[in-house]
Write a protein that binds this DNA or RNA. Sequence first.
DNA 1: CGACGCCTTGATAAATGTCAAACGTCGTGG
DNA 2: CCACGACGTTTGACATTTATCAAGGCGTCG
Lengths: 182, 182
Amino acid sequence: MFFGENEPADYVYKVVASAVRTYKVLADGRRQIRAFYLPGDVFGLEANDTHTFSAEAIGDAKILVVKRSALMALATRENQVACELWSMTGQELRRVQDHILVLIKSAKERVVGFLLEMAERVPSGNHIDLPMSRQDIGDYLGLTMETVSRTLADLESGASIELASARRIVLYDRGALGRLNG
Amino acid sequence: MFFGENEPADYVYKVVASAVRTYKVLADGRRQIRAFYLPGDVFGLEANDTHTFSAEAIGDAKILVVKRSALMALATRENQVACELWSMTGQELRRVQDHILVLIKSAKERVVGFLLEMAERVPSGNHIDLPMSRQDIGDYLGLTMETVSRTLADLESGASIELASARRIVLYDRGALGRLNG
DNA sequence: CGACGCCTTGATAAATGTCAAACGTCGTGG
DNA sequence: CCACGACGTTTGACATTTATCAAGGCGTCG
Protein backbone atom coordinates (compact mmCIF):
# COMPACT_ATOMS: atom_id res chain seq x y z
CA MET A 1 0.00 0.00 0.00
CA PHE A 2 1.39 3.39 -1.04
CA PHE A 3 -0.87 5.82 0.73
CA GLY A 4 -4.28 6.02 2.36
CA GLU A 5 -7.22 8.31 1.95
CA ASN A 6 -6.74 11.72 3.58
CA GLU A 7 -3.04 11.17 4.11
CA PRO A 8 -0.72 14.01 3.10
CA ALA A 9 0.27 13.84 -0.55
CA ASP A 10 4.05 13.95 -0.20
CA TYR A 11 5.01 11.88 -3.23
CA VAL A 12 4.04 11.30 -6.81
CA TYR A 13 4.38 7.81 -8.27
CA LYS A 14 4.96 6.22 -11.65
CA VAL A 15 4.21 2.58 -12.37
CA VAL A 16 7.09 0.65 -13.94
CA ALA A 17 5.80 -2.91 -13.75
CA SER A 18 2.59 -4.72 -12.73
CA ALA A 19 -0.30 -2.47 -11.71
CA VAL A 20 -1.80 -0.29 -8.98
CA ARG A 21 -5.37 0.33 -7.92
CA THR A 22 -6.75 3.41 -6.17
CA TYR A 23 -9.93 3.02 -4.15
CA LYS A 24 -12.21 4.12 -1.38
CA VAL A 25 -13.96 1.90 1.14
CA LEU A 26 -17.43 2.92 2.26
CA ALA A 27 -18.69 2.65 5.82
CA ASP A 28 -20.49 -0.65 5.12
CA GLY A 29 -17.46 -2.29 3.54
CA ARG A 30 -18.29 -1.77 -0.11
CA ARG A 31 -15.24 -0.81 -2.07
CA GLN A 32 -15.13 1.55 -5.02
CA ILE A 33 -12.09 1.26 -7.25
CA ARG A 34 -11.47 4.57 -8.91
CA ALA A 35 -8.72 3.64 -11.32
CA PHE A 36 -6.20 1.06 -12.40
CA TYR A 37 -2.73 2.35 -13.20
CA LEU A 38 -0.65 0.36 -15.63
CA PRO A 39 3.06 0.60 -16.49
CA GLY A 40 3.89 4.13 -17.62
CA ASP A 41 0.99 5.71 -15.74
CA VAL A 42 1.47 8.37 -13.08
CA PHE A 43 -0.66 8.36 -9.94
CA GLY A 44 -0.86 10.17 -6.64
CA LEU A 45 -0.55 13.64 -8.16
CA GLU A 46 -2.84 15.97 -6.24
CA ALA A 47 -3.58 19.64 -6.80
CA ASN A 48 -4.26 19.91 -3.09
CA ASP A 49 -2.29 18.59 -0.15
CA THR A 50 -4.05 15.35 0.70
CA HIS A 51 -4.90 12.18 -1.15
CA THR A 52 -8.55 11.53 -1.80
CA PHE A 53 -8.04 7.81 -2.30
CA SER A 54 -5.99 4.92 -1.06
CA ALA A 55 -3.54 3.24 -3.41
CA GLU A 56 -2.11 -0.25 -3.32
CA ALA A 57 -0.22 -2.60 -5.60
CA ILE A 58 -1.79 -5.46 -7.53
CA GLY A 59 0.83 -8.17 -7.43
CA ASP A 60 4.41 -7.06 -6.77
CA ALA A 61 4.75 -3.77 -8.57
CA LYS A 62 7.81 -1.70 -9.45
CA ILE A 63 7.27 1.99 -8.82
CA LEU A 64 9.21 5.23 -9.30
CA VAL A 65 8.75 7.87 -6.60
CA VAL A 66 9.20 11.65 -6.79
CA LYS A 67 8.91 14.14 -3.93
CA ARG A 68 5.87 16.33 -4.48
CA SER A 69 7.54 19.32 -2.83
CA ALA A 70 10.28 19.20 -5.48
CA LEU A 71 7.65 19.34 -8.21
CA MET A 72 5.83 22.18 -6.50
CA ALA A 73 9.02 24.18 -6.10
CA LEU A 74 9.76 23.68 -9.78
CA ALA A 75 6.22 24.71 -10.68
CA THR A 76 6.43 28.00 -8.83
CA ARG A 77 9.65 28.84 -10.70
CA GLU A 78 8.82 27.51 -14.14
CA ASN A 79 5.31 28.15 -15.29
CA GLN A 80 5.88 25.64 -18.06
CA VAL A 81 5.94 22.97 -15.35
CA ALA A 82 2.88 24.43 -13.65
CA CYS A 83 0.94 24.22 -16.91
CA GLU A 84 2.15 20.68 -17.41
CA LEU A 85 0.86 19.69 -13.98
CA TRP A 86 -2.43 21.36 -14.72
CA SER A 87 -2.68 19.44 -17.95
CA MET A 88 -2.03 16.14 -16.18
CA THR A 89 -4.81 16.83 -13.70
CA GLY A 90 -6.99 17.72 -16.67
CA GLN A 91 -6.26 14.33 -18.23
CA GLU A 92 -7.11 12.65 -14.94
CA LEU A 93 -10.36 14.57 -14.95
CA ARG A 94 -11.22 13.25 -18.39
CA ARG A 95 -10.51 9.72 -17.28
CA VAL A 96 -12.86 10.08 -14.33
CA GLN A 97 -15.53 11.59 -16.55
CA ASP A 98 -15.27 8.65 -18.91
CA HIS A 99 -15.58 6.38 -15.91
CA ILE A 100 -18.82 8.09 -14.89
CA LEU A 101 -20.16 7.56 -18.37
CA VAL A 102 -19.53 3.84 -17.99
CA LEU A 103 -21.32 3.71 -14.66
CA ILE A 104 -24.69 4.77 -15.99
CA LYS A 105 -24.79 1.98 -18.55
CA SER A 106 -25.98 -1.63 -18.38
CA ALA A 107 -23.80 -4.42 -17.04
CA LYS A 108 -22.95 -5.63 -20.54
CA GLU A 109 -21.98 -2.17 -21.70
CA ARG A 110 -19.85 -1.63 -18.62
CA VAL A 111 -17.91 -4.83 -19.09
CA VAL A 112 -17.44 -4.19 -22.80
CA GLY A 113 -16.32 -0.66 -22.05
CA PHE A 114 -13.83 -2.00 -19.56
CA LEU A 115 -12.40 -4.51 -22.03
CA LEU A 116 -12.03 -1.90 -24.74
CA GLU A 117 -10.39 0.51 -22.30
CA MET A 118 -7.90 -2.12 -21.23
CA ALA A 119 -7.22 -3.18 -24.80
CA GLU A 120 -6.47 0.41 -25.70
CA ARG A 121 -4.20 0.99 -22.74
CA VAL A 122 -2.19 -2.21 -23.14
CA PRO A 123 -1.81 -2.71 -26.87
CA SER A 124 -0.61 -6.33 -27.09
CA GLY A 125 -2.18 -7.72 -30.23
CA ASN A 126 -5.76 -8.86 -29.78
CA HIS A 127 -5.60 -10.30 -26.29
CA ILE A 128 -5.53 -8.77 -22.83
CA ASP A 129 -3.79 -10.12 -19.74
CA LEU A 130 -5.68 -8.71 -16.82
CA PRO A 131 -3.66 -8.04 -13.70
CA MET A 132 -6.76 -7.69 -11.53
CA SER A 133 -9.34 -10.10 -10.13
CA ARG A 134 -13.04 -10.29 -10.99
CA GLN A 135 -13.76 -8.66 -7.67
CA ASP A 136 -11.53 -5.74 -8.64
CA ILE A 137 -13.29 -5.38 -11.97
CA GLY A 138 -16.65 -5.50 -10.22
CA ASP A 139 -15.65 -2.82 -7.74
CA TYR A 140 -14.39 -0.70 -10.62
CA LEU A 141 -17.58 -1.08 -12.64
CA GLY A 142 -20.07 -0.96 -9.79
CA LEU A 143 -21.11 -4.58 -10.38
CA THR A 144 -20.76 -7.76 -8.39
CA MET A 145 -18.03 -10.21 -9.23
CA GLU A 146 -20.72 -12.71 -10.26
CA THR A 147 -22.28 -10.32 -12.75
CA VAL A 148 -18.88 -9.61 -14.28
CA SER A 149 -18.24 -13.32 -14.63
CA ARG A 150 -21.63 -14.01 -16.16
CA THR A 151 -21.33 -11.10 -18.56
CA LEU A 152 -17.96 -12.31 -19.77
CA ALA A 153 -19.41 -15.79 -20.27
CA ASP A 154 -22.25 -14.21 -22.19
CA LEU A 155 -19.87 -12.27 -24.44
CA GLU A 156 -17.94 -15.46 -25.06
CA SER A 157 -21.11 -17.30 -26.09
CA GLY A 158 -21.75 -14.42 -28.51
CA ALA A 159 -18.35 -15.16 -30.06
CA SER A 160 -17.01 -11.65 -29.44
CA ILE A 161 -14.34 -12.76 -27.01
CA GLU A 162 -12.66 -15.91 -25.76
CA LEU A 163 -11.70 -16.58 -22.16
CA ALA A 164 -8.39 -18.29 -22.83
CA SER A 165 -7.92 -18.42 -19.09
CA ALA A 166 -9.52 -16.49 -16.25
CA ARG A 167 -7.07 -13.62 -16.61
CA ARG A 168 -6.42 -13.79 -20.35
CA ILE A 169 -9.12 -12.57 -22.69
CA VAL A 170 -8.92 -12.70 -26.47
CA LEU A 171 -10.88 -10.06 -28.37
CA TYR A 172 -12.25 -11.61 -31.54
CA ASP A 173 -14.68 -9.01 -32.77
CA ARG A 174 -13.95 -5.45 -31.73
CA GLY A 175 -16.56 -4.17 -34.13
CA ALA A 176 -19.26 -6.10 -32.31
CA LEU A 177 -17.85 -4.97 -28.97
CA GLY A 178 -17.88 -1.36 -30.09
CA ARG A 179 -21.53 -1.70 -31.06
CA LEU A 180 -22.37 -3.24 -27.68
CA ASN A 181 -20.64 -0.35 -25.99
CA GLY A 182 -23.56 2.00 -26.69
CA MET B 1 -26.85 26.69 -24.62
CA PHE B 2 -23.31 27.91 -23.96
CA PHE B 3 -21.20 25.34 -25.72
CA GLY B 4 -21.33 21.81 -27.08
CA GLU B 5 -19.21 18.75 -26.64
CA ASN B 6 -15.91 18.88 -28.57
CA GLU B 7 -16.26 22.57 -29.33
CA PRO B 8 -13.22 24.76 -28.74
CA ALA B 9 -13.02 26.03 -25.17
CA ASP B 10 -12.72 29.75 -25.82
CA TYR B 11 -14.46 31.08 -22.73
CA VAL B 12 -14.78 30.41 -19.04
CA TYR B 13 -18.12 31.08 -17.35
CA LYS B 14 -19.36 32.02 -13.91
CA VAL B 15 -22.97 31.57 -12.82
CA VAL B 16 -24.58 34.67 -11.34
CA ALA B 17 -28.22 33.62 -11.14
CA SER B 18 -30.32 30.47 -11.76
CA ALA B 19 -28.33 27.36 -12.73
CA VAL B 20 -26.50 25.55 -15.50
CA ARG B 21 -26.18 21.86 -16.34
CA THR B 22 -23.37 20.16 -18.22
CA TYR B 23 -24.13 16.87 -19.95
CA LYS B 24 -23.40 14.32 -22.60
CA VAL B 25 -25.91 12.54 -24.80
CA LEU B 26 -25.20 8.94 -25.72
CA ALA B 27 -25.83 7.45 -29.14
CA ASP B 28 -29.16 5.94 -28.07
CA GLY B 29 -30.47 9.17 -26.62
CA ARG B 30 -29.72 8.60 -22.95
CA ARG B 31 -28.43 11.72 -21.31
CA GLN B 32 -25.85 11.87 -18.58
CA ILE B 33 -25.75 15.06 -16.57
CA ARG B 34 -22.30 15.58 -15.23
CA ALA B 35 -22.82 18.56 -12.96
CA PHE B 36 -25.14 21.31 -11.87
CA TYR B 37 -23.56 24.73 -11.46
CA LEU B 38 -25.20 27.12 -9.03
CA PRO B 39 -24.65 30.85 -8.48
CA GLY B 40 -21.00 31.51 -7.70
CA ASP B 41 -19.77 28.38 -9.48
CA VAL B 42 -17.33 28.49 -12.38
CA PHE B 43 -17.74 26.16 -15.33
CA GLY B 44 -16.23 25.60 -18.74
CA LEU B 45 -12.63 25.78 -17.53
CA GLU B 46 -10.62 23.20 -19.44
CA ALA B 47 -6.98 22.23 -19.11
CA ASN B 48 -7.05 21.27 -22.77
CA ASP B 49 -8.49 23.11 -25.74
CA THR B 50 -11.88 21.51 -26.20
CA HIS B 51 -14.94 21.04 -24.05
CA THR B 52 -15.76 17.49 -23.05
CA PHE B 53 -19.40 18.30 -22.30
CA SER B 54 -22.25 20.44 -23.47
CA ALA B 55 -23.56 23.16 -21.21
CA GLU B 56 -26.95 24.83 -21.11
CA ALA B 57 -28.97 27.03 -18.80
CA ILE B 58 -31.75 25.81 -16.54
CA GLY B 59 -34.31 28.58 -16.64
CA ASP B 60 -33.03 32.00 -17.64
CA ALA B 61 -29.59 32.24 -16.12
CA LYS B 62 -27.27 35.21 -15.68
CA ILE B 63 -23.68 34.40 -16.55
CA LEU B 64 -20.31 36.14 -16.48
CA VAL B 65 -17.94 35.31 -19.33
CA VAL B 66 -14.14 35.51 -19.48
CA LYS B 67 -11.91 34.85 -22.50
CA ARG B 68 -9.88 31.73 -21.88
CA SER B 69 -6.92 33.07 -23.89
CA ALA B 70 -6.66 35.98 -21.44
CA LEU B 71 -6.48 33.57 -18.55
CA MET B 72 -3.91 31.44 -20.31
CA ALA B 73 -1.75 34.44 -21.10
CA LEU B 74 -1.89 35.49 -17.48
CA ALA B 75 -1.02 31.97 -16.39
CA THR B 76 2.12 31.82 -18.50
CA ARG B 77 3.32 35.09 -16.98
CA GLU B 78 2.22 34.64 -13.38
CA ASN B 79 2.77 31.17 -12.03
CA GLN B 80 0.51 32.12 -9.12
CA VAL B 81 -2.37 32.15 -11.59
CA ALA B 82 -1.25 28.88 -13.15
CA CYS B 83 -1.30 27.21 -9.75
CA GLU B 84 -4.71 28.69 -9.07
CA LEU B 85 -6.07 27.22 -12.31
CA TRP B 86 -4.53 23.88 -11.44
CA SER B 87 -6.20 23.99 -8.05
CA MET B 88 -9.59 24.73 -9.61
CA THR B 89 -9.28 21.75 -11.90
CA GLY B 90 -8.30 19.74 -8.83
CA GLN B 91 -11.51 20.80 -7.10
CA GLU B 92 -13.48 19.84 -10.16
CA LEU B 93 -11.77 16.47 -10.06
CA ARG B 94 -12.88 15.96 -6.47
CA ARG B 95 -16.44 16.83 -7.36
CA VAL B 96 -16.46 14.25 -10.13
CA GLN B 97 -14.93 11.66 -7.83
CA ASP B 98 -17.66 12.27 -5.28
CA HIS B 99 -20.17 11.90 -8.08
CA ILE B 100 -18.74 8.49 -8.94
CA LEU B 101 -19.07 7.45 -5.34
CA VAL B 102 -22.77 8.30 -5.50
CA LEU B 103 -23.29 6.29 -8.67
CA ILE B 104 -22.33 2.94 -7.16
CA LYS B 105 -24.94 3.19 -4.41
CA SER B 106 -28.61 2.24 -4.23
CA ALA B 107 -31.36 4.54 -5.48
CA LYS B 108 -32.20 5.71 -1.97
CA GLU B 109 -28.60 6.52 -1.17
CA ARG B 110 -28.18 8.37 -4.45
CA VAL B 111 -31.18 10.57 -3.86
CA VAL B 112 -30.19 11.24 -0.26
CA GLY B 113 -26.66 12.04 -1.36
CA PHE B 114 -28.05 14.44 -3.92
CA LEU B 115 -30.23 16.22 -1.38
CA LEU B 116 -27.37 16.60 1.07
CA GLU B 117 -25.08 17.87 -1.67
CA MET B 118 -27.62 20.46 -2.72
CA ALA B 119 -28.31 21.48 0.87
CA GLU B 120 -24.62 22.00 1.41
CA ARG B 121 -24.15 24.01 -1.74
CA VAL B 122 -27.17 26.29 -1.23
CA PRO B 123 -27.30 26.95 2.48
CA SER B 124 -30.78 28.43 2.93
CA GLY B 125 -32.00 27.19 6.28
CA ASN B 126 -33.40 23.67 6.19
CA HIS B 127 -35.12 23.71 2.84
CA ILE B 128 -33.91 23.43 -0.75
CA ASP B 129 -35.40 25.04 -3.84
CA LEU B 130 -34.41 22.85 -6.72
CA PRO B 131 -33.88 24.60 -10.03
CA MET B 132 -33.93 21.33 -11.97
CA SER B 133 -36.62 18.84 -12.99
CA ARG B 134 -36.98 15.25 -11.83
CA GLN B 135 -35.69 14.17 -15.21
CA ASP B 136 -32.56 16.24 -14.66
CA ILE B 137 -32.03 14.70 -11.23
CA GLY B 138 -32.52 11.24 -12.70
CA ASP B 139 -30.01 11.86 -15.47
CA TYR B 140 -27.57 13.17 -12.89
CA LEU B 141 -27.99 10.17 -10.60
CA GLY B 142 -28.27 7.47 -13.24
CA LEU B 143 -31.89 6.74 -12.31
CA THR B 144 -35.21 7.21 -14.05
CA MET B 145 -37.39 10.14 -13.22
CA GLU B 146 -39.95 7.73 -11.78
CA THR B 147 -37.48 6.17 -9.38
CA VAL B 148 -36.41 9.62 -8.19
CA SER B 149 -40.02 10.55 -7.58
CA ARG B 150 -40.78 7.32 -5.76
CA THR B 151 -37.68 7.58 -3.62
CA LEU B 152 -38.55 11.12 -2.58
CA ALA B 153 -42.06 9.96 -1.67
CA ASP B 154 -40.51 7.15 0.32
CA LEU B 155 -38.24 9.53 2.21
CA GLU B 156 -41.21 11.73 2.96
CA SER B 157 -43.16 8.78 4.36
CA GLY B 158 -40.13 8.10 6.57
CA ALA B 159 -40.49 11.65 7.90
CA SER B 160 -36.96 12.66 6.92
CA ILE B 161 -38.10 15.26 4.41
CA GLU B 162 -41.23 17.05 3.29
CA LEU B 163 -42.16 17.82 -0.29
CA ALA B 164 -43.56 21.29 0.28
CA SER B 165 -44.01 21.50 -3.47
CA ALA B 166 -42.44 19.56 -6.32
CA ARG B 167 -39.38 21.82 -6.39
CA ARG B 168 -39.18 22.76 -2.70
CA ILE B 169 -37.94 20.13 -0.29
CA VAL B 170 -37.71 20.60 3.46
CA LEU B 171 -35.06 18.58 5.25
CA TYR B 172 -36.42 17.56 8.64
CA ASP B 173 -33.91 15.04 9.83
CA ARG B 174 -30.42 15.41 8.45
CA GLY B 175 -29.12 12.89 10.96
CA ALA B 176 -31.39 10.22 9.48
CA LEU B 177 -30.45 11.31 5.97
CA GLY B 178 -26.78 11.10 6.82
CA ARG B 179 -27.27 7.56 8.06
CA LEU B 180 -29.16 6.61 4.89
CA ASN B 181 -26.31 8.00 2.85
CA GLY B 182 -24.13 4.98 3.59
C1' DC C 1 -61.74 27.34 -18.22
C1' DG C 2 -58.77 24.39 -20.77
C1' DA C 3 -54.42 22.80 -22.38
C1' DC C 4 -49.93 21.74 -21.57
C1' DG C 5 -45.93 20.35 -19.00
C1' DC C 6 -44.27 18.19 -15.07
C1' DC C 7 -44.89 15.11 -11.49
C1' DT C 8 -46.81 11.05 -9.16
C1' DT C 9 -48.63 6.44 -8.82
C1' DG C 10 -49.60 1.72 -10.29
C1' DA C 11 -48.80 -2.81 -12.57
C1' DT C 12 -45.53 -5.49 -14.62
C1' DA C 13 -41.10 -6.85 -16.65
C1' DA C 14 -36.22 -6.90 -16.81
C1' DA C 15 -31.79 -6.50 -14.79
C1' DT C 16 -28.80 -7.26 -11.15
C1' DG C 17 -27.70 -8.83 -6.49
C1' DT C 18 -27.48 -12.51 -2.97
C1' DC C 19 -26.46 -16.87 -1.25
C1' DA C 20 -24.67 -21.27 -1.98
C1' DA C 21 -22.33 -24.88 -4.20
C1' DA C 22 -19.20 -26.80 -7.64
C1' DC C 23 -15.14 -26.22 -10.42
C1' DG C 24 -10.16 -25.16 -11.73
C1' DT C 25 -5.71 -23.92 -11.02
C1' DC C 26 -1.71 -23.43 -8.69
C1' DG C 27 1.49 -24.09 -5.05
C1' DT C 28 2.86 -26.94 -1.06
C1' DG C 29 4.02 -30.91 1.39
C1' DG C 30 3.98 -35.79 1.76
C1' DC D 1 5.26 -37.21 -8.65
C1' DC D 2 0.86 -37.05 -6.80
C1' DA D 3 -2.58 -35.57 -3.37
C1' DC D 4 -4.40 -31.89 -0.95
C1' DG D 5 -5.87 -27.43 0.22
C1' DA D 6 -6.48 -22.59 -0.62
C1' DC D 7 -8.16 -19.28 -3.46
C1' DG D 8 -10.27 -17.30 -7.33
C1' DT D 9 -13.79 -18.24 -10.60
C1' DT D 10 -17.98 -20.01 -12.51
C1' DT D 11 -22.68 -21.52 -12.34
C1' DG D 12 -27.33 -22.07 -10.41
C1' DA D 13 -31.66 -20.82 -7.96
C1' DC D 14 -33.89 -17.25 -6.09
C1' DA D 15 -34.80 -12.46 -4.12
C1' DT D 16 -34.61 -7.69 -4.74
C1' DT D 17 -34.13 -3.54 -7.07
C1' DT D 18 -35.02 -0.62 -10.72
C1' DA D 19 -36.88 0.23 -15.40
C1' DT D 20 -40.72 0.36 -18.42
C1' DC D 21 -45.18 1.42 -19.90
C1' DA D 22 -49.39 3.54 -18.95
C1' DA D 23 -52.74 6.30 -16.55
C1' DG D 24 -54.01 9.97 -13.58
C1' DG D 25 -53.25 14.36 -10.83
C1' DC D 26 -51.67 18.97 -10.06
C1' DG D 27 -50.32 23.48 -11.04
C1' DT D 28 -49.53 27.26 -14.32
C1' DC D 29 -50.43 30.19 -17.97
C1' DG D 30 -52.76 31.58 -21.87
